[in-house]
Structure formats: C-alpha cells, structure tokens
C-alpha cells in the first residue's frame, strides 16, 4: 500500500468512526435498562433489554397525557415526511413548469422572487406563519403541519434547471403530436423527470422527517407529535425522583434515524443518477 493511500484510509476510517460511534452508542445504550444507564452512563456493549425497550417505546403510551405511543409518532413522522416531500415535488414541478414553458408577464421576476425566498428560511418567518396557520384553524392538524412548509425555492430551482435542459424539439414534437400543455406535462415531462423526482424526494423526505421547530410550534396535541419532537418529551420527564428513561430516548432516536437511512440506502443509485445525469 502506498503511503498516500494509507493516510487516505486513516482519514476515511476516522471520519467513519466519528459519524458512527454516536449511532452505536445510541443503539447499544437503548438495549440497557434505565437504572444501569443512570448508574454507569452510556454503553458501548449490548445489554439484555433490547426487545423490552423497543416494545415499550413502540406500544406503550407516554407523554403527559399518555395518549401517544412510539408507533403513533412514527406514523406522524411518516405522514409529515411523505406529505412534505410529495407536496414540495408537486408544487415545485408545477411552478417550474409554469416558469419555463409559459410566457406570462413578469415570469422571470416571479422566479427571482421565489428564488430569493431561499434567504428566508422558516425560522425567519416563523411567527407570521404561525399566526396565519393558527388563524386558519389549522393548528394541531396534519395539513397545518405540512402545507406551510411545502413551498420550495430549492425544488423549483432544480426543476427549472432540468426543464430548461429538455430540448425544445421535444415540446414541438409533442405539440405536433397533438399533446396539449397538460398532456405534455403528464405524458412527457413527468416521466422524464423520474430520476430527478427521486433525488428531490429523498432530500425532502429526510428534511421533512427531521423537522423539529415547526412541529413543536404547531402541534400541542400529543397525538400529533412526530418522533423527532416526541423524543425530547421523554427526556424531559424529570419529575420528582424519577430516573429519566434514557434507554427509551435512545431507542426513539434509533427509530427516528432508521427510515431516512433506509430511504437513502434503497434509493441511492437513483439519487446519484438524478443529480448527475438525466434521460434525454
């Protein structure tokens, strides 16, 4: 092995450890019981309570009102993640379609307006957004959780760039073949964007799944809690002399990590394809 290769590997291994050790900590710790963790700290070796902990976390109702289980939270997260990703894809594809293929007054201007909202993340507009959603009576609903988040400058920009790279002749051929705007979009553009959609879906699903601030703000009803938000609830149970259920929190963390990891692993070839090449 050449020297440079050796160091390459050292750096890679260190990097991998840096990323993985916390995950291993969480996984191992979640298989111990709360008392031993309280006494001995975080664990790196497997304990004997793996099944117990996960069963408890998934099925036993927790929180203040005892109305939410891990499974409910998992479901809520899934609804948020999927709704967020699909919502963003649909909205940004339609927006990009309008911007690229239709000439309307101030089209470019609107594109730049949309684009400039990249500079205004949710955190900046969180109070007015909350006010509006609250005013519309959408607090503590799935739609309140999802809809305010789905306008996407990034997605619009991606699809705009992609649509612009689709040859004009394709549009013209479709026009001569008698495909109107809607038919062209559904029959030609959407299938062509498949890999692109997959890539955006992955990014957006993970992004939606990991949302913390907005769900925290908009859901006060525990039955609507997402995993990422619910996890905190468990560690907060410091009432009286009770020992915090660190094992359960870790189990939830592991559960929260799992779906995004799975999505990325399963779709990674599509993901790479969507970002580097396109079927044209």
């Amino acid at each position: 092995m050449k020297r440079s290769q050796f160091w390459d590997h050292v750096i890679l291994v260190l990097g991998a450890l840096f990323m993985l050790v916390p995950v291993v900590y969480a996984l191992m710790t979640s298989s111990h019981d709360a008392v031993s963790i309280y006494k001995e700290g975080l664990q790196l070796s497997p304990g004997g309570h793996f099944v117990d902990t996960y069963k408890q976390v998934l099925t036993e109702a927790g929180g203040f009102t005892k109305s939410v289980t891990g499974l409910t939270m998992l479901w809520n997260s899934l609804v948020l993640g999927l709704g967020f990703a699909f919502g963003k894809i649909i909205i940004s594809m339609l927006a990009a379609y309008a911007i690229v293929y239709f000439r309307f007054p101030l089209g470019t201007f609107f594109f730049w307006i949309i684009f400039s909202t990249l500079l205004l993340p949710l955190e900046v507009r969180i109070l007015p957004s909350y006010e509006i959603v609250q005013g519309l009576g959408m607090a503590n609903t799935y739609s309140g959780l999802i809809i305010p988040l789905i306008a996407s400058a990034t997605g619009t920009f991606y699809f705009r760039q992609f649509f612009k790279s689709v040859p004009d002749e394709l549009v013209e051929a479709a026009r001569i073949d008698g495909a109107g705007p809607l038919k062209f979009f559904i029959d030609i553009l959407v299938p062509l964007s498949k890999t692109m959609i997959a890539a955006i879906f992955i990014i957006m699903f993970v992004f939606g799944w990991n949302q913390y601030l907005w769900p925290t703000l908009i859901t006060t009803d525990e039955s609507l809690f997402t995993l990422v938000r619910g996890m905190k609830q468990i560690l907060q149970v410091w009432i009286g002399a009770q020992i915090p259920d660190t094992n359960q929190a870790m189990a939830l963390a592991v559960l929260a990590m799992l779906p995004p990891v799975l999505i990325v692993v399963i779709f990674q070839s599509w993901f790479v394809k969507g970002l580097v090449e396109s079927e044209k």
Binding site: E169, A173, I176
Partner: peptide, 20 residues
C-alpha cells in the same frame, strides 16, 4: 391553426424522440 390540427408531420434534426 394549431400545429396538431394542420395535418402535417415533422421530422426534427435531433429526432426529438420521447426518450422514456
């Protein structure tokens, strides 16, 4: 008249086949 209704067919330089 719209291209589709002109009763013509066109062959393009880069073929413009639907790739999918």
């Amino acid at each position: 008249v719209e291209p589709a209704d002109r009763d013509i067919a066109m062959v393009f330089q880069n073929y413009a086949l639907y790739p999918h």
